[in-house]
Amino acid sequence: MNSFLDWVGRTPLSLYLGDTAWTIPTIQAVHIMAVAAVFFSALWLDMRILGVVGRGQPFAPLSRRFAPWIGWGVVVLLLTGLLLMAAEPTRAILNLYFQIKMAALVIVGTLTWAMAAGAKADSPLWGAPETQGTAKLIAIISLVLWALIITAGRWIAYGP
């Protein structure tokens, strides 16, 4: 693993990112903008499921509006995240917070996919989600996981 990370650190891409002053903060800025789009979309859908916002609106159109932003936003996050890792390979991969973040992302990604697919297929669970205990539980777990991802992500910079 360490020899692989050393190799990544010597690639032209890694050296370029390390040598230019503007690339890393710019990629980080794109990353944080994508976090805003993804996290707020997820927050809004989860708040709708919990009946906090938009109770009068059906869930399916709201899911069609926001779920693609979560999906494509995560793609942007993975791409910018890969570039940031290429710049400093050992900083993230071996970092405990990074590992927690990725594990939480896999779980919340699965839950979000199940939610969006269910809403698309008019599954009864997502018809009036504010009345469904299971849907509300998924929303709460998702919110906790997104919060964990953001927190762990910020703490990578300070992590062991």
Partner: peptide
């Protein structure tokens, strides 16, 4: 800083 990130993502996202 983490709390600031939560706040700014909600500001920008909304």
């Amino acid at each position: 800083e983490t709390l600031h990130v939560f706040a700014l993502t909600i500001v920008a996202g909304s």
